[in-house]
Simulated scan of single mutants.
Amino acid sequence: MLLAGGAAFAASPAEANTITVTVTDLRSHDGVVRACMTRVEAIFPRCIRDPKSHRTVVPASSRVVIRFDNVEPGEYAIALLHDENDNGKADRTLGMMPREGYGFSRDAKVRMGPPEWRDSVFHHARDPQVMTIRMRYFI
Rank of each mutant, 00 (worst) to 15 (best):
M1I: 13
M1W: 09
L2W: 09
A4Y: 04
A8K: 12
A10I: 12
P13I: 14
P13Y: 13
A16T: 00
T18C: 01
I19F: 06
V21H: 02
V21N: 07
T22I: 04
V23F: 07
V23K: 08
D25G: 00
L26Y: 01
L26H: 09
R27C: 08
R27E: 03
D30V: 08
V32A: 01
V33F: 01
C36P: 04
M37R: 01
M37A: 01
R39S: 10
R39D: 04
V40F: 00
E41Y: 02
A42K: 11
I43L: 09
I43F: 08
F44N: 06
F44E: 02
F44V: 10
P45R: 09
I48Y: 11
R49C: 00
D50P: 04
P51M: 11
K52N: 15
H54K: 15
H54Q: 13
V57Q: 11
V57E: 10
V58F: 05
P59Y: 04
A60M: 05
S61P: 03
R63K: 14
V64M: 05
V65D: 06
V65R: 07
V65P: 07
I66C: 10
I66Q: 07
R67P: 07
F68P: 05
D69I: 05
V71Y: 05
V71A: 04
E75V: 11
Y76N: 02
A77V: 02
I78L: 09
L80G: 04
H82N: 08
D83R: 06
G88V: 15
G88Y: 14
G88A: 13
G88I: 14
G88N: 12
G88L: 12
A90T: 10
T93A: 15
T93S: 15
G95H: 10
G95C: 10
G95E: 11
M96D: 11
M96Q: 12
G101M: 10
G103V: 06
G103I: 08
F104W: 09
S105L: 07
D107K: 03
K109L: 14
K109A: 12
V110M: 15
V110F: 13
R111M: 13
R111H: 14
R111D: 14
M112A: 15
G113N: 13
G113K: 13
P114L: 13
W117C: 01
W117H: 03
F122D: 03
H123G: 09
H124I: 03
R126E: 11
Q129H: 13
Q129D: 11
V130D: 13
M131E: 00
M131R: 07
R134K: 12
R134V: 08
R134H: 12
M135W: 03
M135D: 06
M135I: 07
R136G: 05
Y137D: 06
F138I: 03
